[in-house]
Each structure stands twice: as C-alpha cells, then as structure tokens.
Design a binder for these strands. Structure first.
Lengths: 377, 377
DNA sequence: GCTCAATAATTTCCTTCGTCAAGTATTGAT
DNA sequence: ATCAATACTTGACGAAGGAAATTATTGAGC
C-alpha cells in the first residue's frame, strides 16, 4: 500500500514492478514489455514520480539507429523507503534493513534464550529498534520469515517445529510490538520470492530455489506465482525418495533426499562417533575418501531430486543454496552429475546455479516479501 | 472465437466458462463466484444467449430461506455447436464428435497403413467426413492430439516418435485438408485439459493427471494453467528415479518409474519368453504370485512418482488413468500404498482417483482442447 | 386477496482505465 | 535550416464494469 492510501491501477502496478525488478527502462520499452500504450505508461508513472518512488534518469544512451529523441529511463529511487526483514530461528533473530531494491543497508542479530512467543516479541521489538535509527522515518514495513507451516495471507503461524509454536497470530502480535505493518512468510518461500524479484529469478515465468542444510527444501514459482499446495504442502523435495533401499527417514519412508543429504544424514553416513558436520567437511577436504564418498552420495541425491523438479515442472532455472553449501566445493560436482543423469531430454538444459548462501540472506528474503506487499496488496 | 467474430470481454469469457464447466447457475451466484456485480453478469450473458450458446432455465429450486424471486439459472445449450476430436497414434486414427459439454455424440476410427504426413492427412479428411454428417452445419472446430513434442500455440509438431514426424506444420495442413479451424495439442496435455474443464479437475486451482501405459506421463495444472516447462519438458513423471539400483531405463538412467512400470518393463520383469502384457495380466489374475509381484512393484513405483508430484506441487487432486489401467485391479492397491508411504505430511490427504480410461477418451481430450479454444482465444 | 419482506434480474447513470490520434520535444543527418 | 526518427505528452473517446434505483416474482402473515 502506497502512502496516499489508494490502490494503484493495474497498469501502475505493472509499471512499478517492472521498473523495480528490471532496472532503469524507458517508457516506450515499458509499453512494449507490458503490452500497454505509451500513453498509459506516462499516466501510470506520473503519480509514482510525484510520490518519490520513481525518478527520471538523465537521457543517456542512444537507442535507435541514429536520430530520435533520447529516452529518459525510469528508475527506482531505492532510498525512498526502507524495509526491515527478520528471520526467526530457534535460537536467534537475524535482522536487516534494506532499501526498495532489497539491498541490505544494515544488519544485526540477537540470541534467543527462550522461544516463547512473548520472549520472542520482546527481543524482536528491541532488534527492530536497534536496526531502525536514521531509517525510522522512512520505514513502515517489517517482514518476518519463519520455518514451518505459515499462512501468508493471514500472518498466522500454524506450526513451527524449532520454535514449538502452534497457531500463533504472529502478524497481529508483531504489529502491536513494533508499530510497523507486518508480513509473515515461510522462510523458504521468502527466499524464493527474494530471488524471483531481485535475484536470478527476475523475468522468469517459472523458477525453483533449493535450500540445502539441516533439511532440504524447495520454493517453486510457476506461472509467475509461488506454488503453495492445495493441502498446504509444496516444494517438499526433501521427501522424494531416490533409493527404495536407502537409509530410513524420519518421515517413515526410506531413501528420501533428506535422509541421504541432510546434515544429520551425512554425519550419520560418515559413522565416526563424535565427528560433527563441520569436522566431516574438514576431513573430506583433507582427502578422506570415505567421508568424501558420503558427500558425493549426498550431492548425487540432491541432484536427483532437482532433476525430479526439472522433469515435472520444467522451470526456467534453478538456484541451489543454503547453509549446507558452505561445503559448496564438496557438493557441487555431484549435484550436477546427479542432475544430468536424471534430467530427461531438454530438462537437462535447465541452468543450475549452485552457490553458498550469504549471511543474513534469510532476513533479506523476509524484507523482500514486505517489499512485494507494498505493491501486491 | 465466437461466430460474431468479435472477442468476448473478460467478464463474458468468465461467465461462459463458469456456466460451461460448473453447470446451470444463476446470475447472482455467478456474480458471487466471479467477483463481479450482478449487473455485469446480466450484460455479459445477454449476447451469449442471443447467439444461442446459453439459455435460461425455468426457475426451479428455491434458493433462499423462504421468500424471494426464484432464480433462472443459466445453462449451456450443449447442441449449439459440435467439435471433432481426433487422436493420431502410430497405427490408428480415433475420432469423436462431441457437443459443447464434451459429451461424445458419435465416434469412429481408421487404421493407418502409413504414417507419412500426406497419408495421415488423407485418412484424416475421410474420417472427419464420416464423423460429421448431420453435425456438419454446426461444426467449425477440429482438435488433434498427438504424442510427442507439440507447440500448441503454433500447431507445429516438433517431434513425434511413433509417427516419426519432425517439424510438421500440422495445424495449417489439417485446416487445408478439412476446412475446419484446427487446434493441435500433446495427447497427455489434451487429456489433462479435458479433465480440468469437464472432469474431476473442474474448479481446482491445481490438478494432476497421470497416464499409465507404454510410458508413464503426467499433465499438470498449477494456478489454473497447464504447465508447459520453460525448456519444453514438463510432467515427465516417467523419468523420476525411485530406485538407484533399479533396472536400466532407455533414457540412460536406472530405476525410473517408466523402467519399472511401463508395459514393456513389466513384461521384462515377468521374464517369461513369449508372454505378452495381456497374458501377464491374465496370469496375475489367476493367482501367479511371481507375475503379481511384478505388477505390485510397478504400482508401488507409480505411487512413489505420484507422491513426488504431491510433495512438490501439492495439487488439489490427482487422477490416474491410461490404457495400462485395464489392469486396474492389479495396480490400484499398490499405487495407493506407494503413494501413502512416500507422501509427506498433509500431501497424503490429496485425493487419488484411479480408474481405467474409456475407449476414445484421448480423442475426447482433443475435442476438449478445441472447445477451450473457442473461449480462450 | 392484500401487503410486505425477501431475493433475482435489469436498467440507468457514472467512474475508471486505457487507447487513439494528434501534437510537442529532442536528437542526428543532410 | 530542414527533415526524419524516436520519445514522450495531451486530450478526446470508448469500453467495461460498478452503484443504486427499479422491476419481477415469490412466500408468509393477516
């Protein structure tokens, strides 16, 4: 919702999102891109410029063959408004402030000593206070990312395993605690949204993001929209079985991707008492073949799971990321090999980006969701 | 495209599709259902009634608590227009004529002695002539279903393995041969569209159809739209691997669903020289445990693959069908067992319909696509 | 039978949005 | 200087859908 309180016309929303996600672009190019008349673009842009969200750049490059009036591209004024994003984990709050382009301007975090909703809200209030500062006057929105079963529309957390929350009206409570307009989203979906609007998913009609860590998750964009699942389940790549005779999974089945490639599963596969995940990484890097094989098998399973996504929905591209990919070098070739083997036909053409997840990226995802809420509501 | 040549307003399209797929319904109910004012529904319906596509039913049931003017529901005049649908296989053309509600009015087929495009077009012309008859004056559309890589938008068949066609401009050629407006679609997608508009997928935002036969295929509706895959591949459930050490698949990998549950794979698993698929069915039904086990393993693999669909995209419901399901009784319990084991959490709530595929259903799918083209173009 | 409340459908008027076509702005080439 | 080319703006217009009043048709209460 923009400050004037009124909803934007469809064309204005389209113009704003296109400029936001596809960088400076002239009105004529926008008209072509959005199937609008250039008159409509001019009219839609005017109030956005008046409110300070867009600005006209100095006419720069020549576009056409030679002559012609040079274009004055429209650009986002990134510092027009700021957004707070906070990822809530079982033992920590990670917070960032970003601008309209979802660039992180500052960050902070806070250890959680208790996960009761009241304790978390208190800590959240303090963290937000610390983060804002000179940003406060131009900040109205707070995004929260929580793992588990979250209803984005109502801001209700139905169940969050690590926090041990059941049916918490998080949006309402957080709005009271901070005075900001709050959006709540599942953490993987938030990250996927960030990538769709501000990362590699820009412009793609379909897109997938896979997270590798304690669990294996997946956010899915199809037809430009986040897939939610009619029964509340979607993107559960971690429980696709790739080996009927594989190790037992906590879900009750065998050979699930998560039961082979989750951090715990790798530790268990290494099978040396007392060896942690990061020690296993160190051993593999120092050339321990048995430990390396565990990572290889894990990477291969992840690649198979990703191929299942590619075979079924055929996204434009897939990004693989997550804490687990601090061990990027150990996983990457095996993820690619598993994917190539299992991807069917042209699905193998789907570009795979495999990269570690920068610190505070989860919190940035939460902020991105609140940026999206500015437009899409 | 309706006979007046003009495109329908969005509201009129919505009204028509809602009446078409959701049966007789009053204007007020339509308005609620489509988030329109009742005035808009009245206006949208008028020209459709004038053209003979809709009709007002006699006021029937009382709706409200007691008093009030009774509603006059709008209904489709199913015999206003007829549609021809033809499925082209490697050795046969199967054709039907359906009404607007995709009910089959007549059917016919023709053996193919050659699969060259010219031979097929000749046979197609004759088949269409045979099918039409008294339907001719009210028939303008022909839908074709072809397996393989088909570009629905251009009517171009890029590659069809059984017909051995490469880059055939099928729409253009078939329009010349028959004088009808032609739509071309991949066979599985056509069947999925039929189910979305006229079968169990009606009203569902997301929906999946799995076909079991020589291959294992899958059509996917997400966000109300057919998933096509950015690289031209989607719904390839047959090449999801469920067993790393399973039998080799023609795609080069191992343990693909199709390599376990395709008709050939089952015959191979039975491992008795000279025994065909239908003989294997008979053996299993007569209590041959070894043969029964092959069907059990196949059903389980299909169930696993379906669970992957449910875990990833979470459709409202899934229909399993296909020629292979003439052996319905042998597969069904194992498909359900594999699905339940592998579906994660609430994904297991996804209703599964498992049913054999009536004869000419593929051709009906082709007709359904051409009905859809009437509205959505 | 008459009146009234309740619900369905239509009509009339009006707003909104975006297009069309004409005009203005700004450049390079001749 | 003039002209062609391209970008943008303006104002008139039209189509689509909404709001509210009006008409239509019923059952209930008297």
């Amino acid at each position: 919702m923009f400050p004037d309180g009124e909803a934007l016309a469809p064309a204005a929303t389209a113009v704003f999102t296109a400029v936001l996600t596809e960088g400076p672009i002239s009105r004529v190019a926008l008209a072509r891109r959005l199937n609008l008349s250039s008159a409509a673009v001019t009219k839609a842009a005017r109030p956005l410029i008046a409110m300070g969200y867009l600005e006209e750049q100095a006419a720069t490059e020549r576009t056409g063959p030679g002559a012609g009036r040079p274009a004055s591209p429209l650009a986002i004024r990134a510092d027009r408004e700021f957004f707070v994003g906070v990822k809530i984990t079982g033992d920590e709050l990670i917070g960032v402030v970003t601008d309209l382009r979802a660039e992180v301007r500052t960050s902070a975090h806070r250890r959680l000593t208790a996960t009761g909703i009241d304790d978390v809200l208190t800590q959240l209030g303090e963290l937000v206070n610390e983060l804002l500062g000179s940003f406060r006057p131009r900040t109205r929105h707070l995004g929260l990312a929580v793992s588990g079963d979250v209803d984005h529309a109502t801001g209700f957390v139905r169940y969050s395993p690590f926090l041990r929350w059941h049916d918490v009206a998080l949006r309402e409570l957080a709005e009271k605690a901070t005075g900001l307009t709050v959006t709540v989203e599942n953490d993987v979906k938030a990250l996927t949204t960030a990538e769709q609007w501000f990362g590699e998913g820009v412009g793609a009609d379909s897109f997938a993001l896979v997270t590798v860590g304690a669990g294996i998750g997946c956010g899915l964009i199809v037809g430009g929209r986040l897939v939610s699942g009619a029964h509340g389940v979607a993107g559960e790549i971690g429980h696709i079985s790739v080996d009927t005779n594989g190790p037992a999974c906590h879900c009750g089945s065998r050979g699930c991707v998560e039961a082979i490639a989750g951090a715990d599963a790798i530790v268990r596969a290494v099978g040396r008492p007392g060896v942690t995940f990061s020690q296993a990484v160190a051993l593999a890097r120092s050339g321990d073949a048995a430990v390396g094989a565990a990572f290889a098998r894990a990477g291969d399973a992840i690649g198979s799971g990703i191929a299942a996504v590619a075979n079924l929905v055929g996204p434009s591209r897939i990004v693989v990321s997550g804490e687990g990919l601090s061990a990027y070098d150990l996983f990457e070739p095996h993820i690619r090999a598993g994917f190539q083997r299992q991807a069917f036909g042209a699905a193998a053409d789907c570009p795979l980006s495999i990269r570690p997840l920068p610190f505070e990226e989860w919190a940035r995802g939460a902020a991105a969701v609140s940026i999206k809420a500015l437009v899409a509501s």
